[in-house]
Amino acid sequence: MSEVPNDLKYTREHEWVRSEDDGTCVIGITDHAQAELGDLVFVEPPEVGTSFGAGDAVAVVESVKAASDIYAPVAGEIVEANDSLADSPELINSDPYGEGWIYRLRPESPDDLADLLDADAYQEFVEADSD
């Protein structure tokens, strides 16, 4: 069973979202997603300073198996990308909710975050998906 921390929000594209005190949020992929993808070997980071709409593809992660888009959970501007992933994409496998974070976004409207899934809802979504 994969880990789904209670203090995070989630998307149906298997991203997690952590709201920070400074009004930005940090985004990565879930434990379930990294396990599905297998060993990560390449990350194409999002471009800092670029704005995206909710659901836009902002970055790409490639595993031994396939390439996957990483989406913006809400509309906003990319303010930081995790540079460590260029040399160590495997951080996404070993620590998906910590050192394996992918980027930081400043939401256009913080209220949008309320529409994301909580841990229980995401867990249910994953279980329904794997049936």
Binding site: G38, D39, V41, V64, K65, E90, N93
Partner: peptide, 8 residues
């Protein structure tokens, strides 16, 4: 078996 934990 696709892998047993880590393909790499």
């Amino acid at each position: 078996p696709l892998h047993y934990g880590s393909q790499l």
